[in-house]
Design a protein around this nucleic acid. Structure first.
Lengths: 336, 336
DNA sequence: GCCATAGAGGTAAATGTTTACATTTTTATT
DNA sequence: AATAAAAATGTAAACATTTACCTCTATGGC
């Protein structure tokens, strides 16, 4: 592979000159530019990004840490970061495979080894303390989908509690009185807060949910189906279900229809996330929009700003997002 | 950031020794290992991957070139590559944003600048000649979803023609006689070959499709809806539709049901790709499985092998995949 | 006790760039 | 024509590593 020295030698100039034309630096004559450009093309010269990164101590890499790419939610996240990466002429370096605190840490370390300065991290397993330490050590690290009070200005997150409240208000406004809930069996903040917000508003309205009408399962299509079967087996009446996410909601609808219930005429179903799926389901799913792509773009931009030299510390700022109700076909006014 | 020199100085050894413990090289005493390891931990030392790559002339990066990440199909592709990357302790470098031949070329160039030796490239816009040239220049480049005779041993592809044939045989076996087709309006090989294979088998069976029962549109949900509306407007009878992809197929089902047709009782609909969506739709979509994740893994492994020093040239090999029929609920026997 | 040998560790060159600084060339001013 | 200023170019150090080669020390066989 041709190096800058080869180009310099053949063009009959110094490496400095070549470097200058490469970087469109100042003080190069048009004659040199032409001469060097030609040789570069002839030799098929491509500058070595590693050497560049080494000497300039800058990185053109934007790191993303997510569990995987198959989940469309995380794919959208990555896509949001990639969008700003492209805009800034940087590249995406992806670290995935997060199953434990150790693997999350390892994913971040990989980025550090690459001297990646800007990173958007989705971590559910690392502890608050570890994350705080990390954020203080790495100036361009921004957390997404997580809120830690002490480093609030470095967190881009969704208000799940408020999401639950919005869901409850929507269903109450549709005249529903008897509710069921399907939540995720995993003990992380998201399902807990969504349910908490939901129940809080219900309680204020004088309604509450029978414990046997709250079911937990895997946050997948199957999980939704199974949870709904148990809900129906409980034998208690309900006219609306608030479901943890869209995949489970679609599973729920499937089971309900198989059992002779029409959605939304007999039972309303409300999802969460607004993934692509929800627009393709029949009936089209009413859900709460989780603007993950925009959030990812914001996170990437914040991370980028933090690493800019004249960055003002944005302490005190908050990057909370509120989910937006998307009324489609799976929820309707209770008439009977 | 602490460097290897800092570690050496503080541990009271030479940089060579530090490097040796870092790389678990030979000729280091346990005493030195312990001493150096402690200092590394104390200083929070992380080796610089750029410097390493520079001096060793090796890369631990696996490059992927795809149009975007939002499309679940490409996300699966990326995920397949990422799976083997993790297995080999390498990282994913993603280049996206392919809208033109130039941007595809640029994406590949970015990987070359990083001295990425192993790459899986999905290109639809670059010409055969350019790709052949590229493949010959970069020993670790493998093409996915594209077949070019001259470099067949570097192509991992799906037999779209055969896919169309399988679709036709399936629908014929279900006793259908009157067919409609919905294809993509984009003039690339995939839709053309699928349709060609489909028509070929039909013709052999003595059936053919009226020209007004072949519609073209955007390969999306909306495209499928619009195409189906035009199909119905044509006024000709048909009992089965072969659709270019799953998104369009789901759009087609949606329009059919809105017009009072029951799928599959009145009309069977067969999709292509077997994306996540197809399992979530109602009725569940019958489709042809495109094993993109496995194909991506194979492509990555081939690319990896090509760059191994003792690699035998695999000229003469072929990496063709045949789509597999996945019979779900949207196709059924024609009774009436 | 001598010498060959192996094991441990050090020295310094090399990797491909950028860039501060020094030097040379060109241009403008008088 | 001389000189100052500006522009163009070159020189060499620096970036963080790896590794071939060299030196030193300890060990053991005789």
């Amino acid at each position: 592979m041709a190096t800058i020295k080869d180009v310099a030698r053949i063009a009959g100039v110094s490496v400095a000159s070549v470097s200058r034309v490469l970087n469109k630096g100042p003080k190069v004559s048009q004659k040199t530019i032409d001469k060097v450009s030609k040789v570069m093309k002839d030799l098929n010269y491509t500058p070595d990004a590693n050497a560049r990164a080494l000497v300039t101590q800058k990185s053109t890499t934007l790191g993303v840490v997510i569990p995987d790419l198959v989940d469309p939610f995380f794919a959208s996240l990555a896509n949001g970061v990639e969008l700003v990466a492209r805009q800034k002429n940087m590249q995406l370096l992806l670290s995935t495979g997060l199953v434990s605190a150790e693997s999350e840490m390892q994913a971040i370390n990989l980025l550090i080894e690459r001297r990646c300065k800007v990173m958007v991290v989705h971590s559910k397993k690392l502890s608050d303390e570890t994350l705080i330490e990390l954020v203080n050590k790495i100036s361009g690290l921004v957390l997404i989908d997580r809120f830690i009070e002490e480093i609030a200005h470095r967190c881009v997150w969704l208000d799940n509690l408020e999401g639950g409240k919005i869901a409850a208000r929507h269903l109450l406004a549709l005249n529903h009185q008897n509710f069921a809930c399907i939540s995720s069996k995993y003990r992380i903040d998201d399902p807990r807060l969504r349910l908490q917000g939901f129940q809080h508003v219900l309680k204020s309205a004088g309604v509450d949910i029978a414990p046997e009408l709250i079911e937990y399962d895997e946050p997948t299509l199957q999980g939704g189906e199974l949870a709904t079967q148990r809900l129906l087996a409980a034998g208690k009446e309900f006219s609306a279900i608030f479901v943890y996410n869209d995949a489970m909601a679609i599973g729920a609808i499937s089971t309900l229809e198989d059992n002779g219930f029409k959605v939304p005429y007999d039972i309303s179903v409300l999802g969460f996330d607004d993934v692509l799926l929800s627009r393709y389901s029949r009936p089209k799913l009413s859900t709460l929009n989780y603007p993950i792509e925009q959030m990812a773009m914001q996170a990437a931009n914040i991370a980028l700003e933090l690493t800019a030299k004249d960055s003002k510390p944005n302490i005190g700022m908050s990057f909370k997002h509120i989910p937006r109700l998307v009324k489609r076909e799976s929820t309707s006014f209770k008439t009977s």
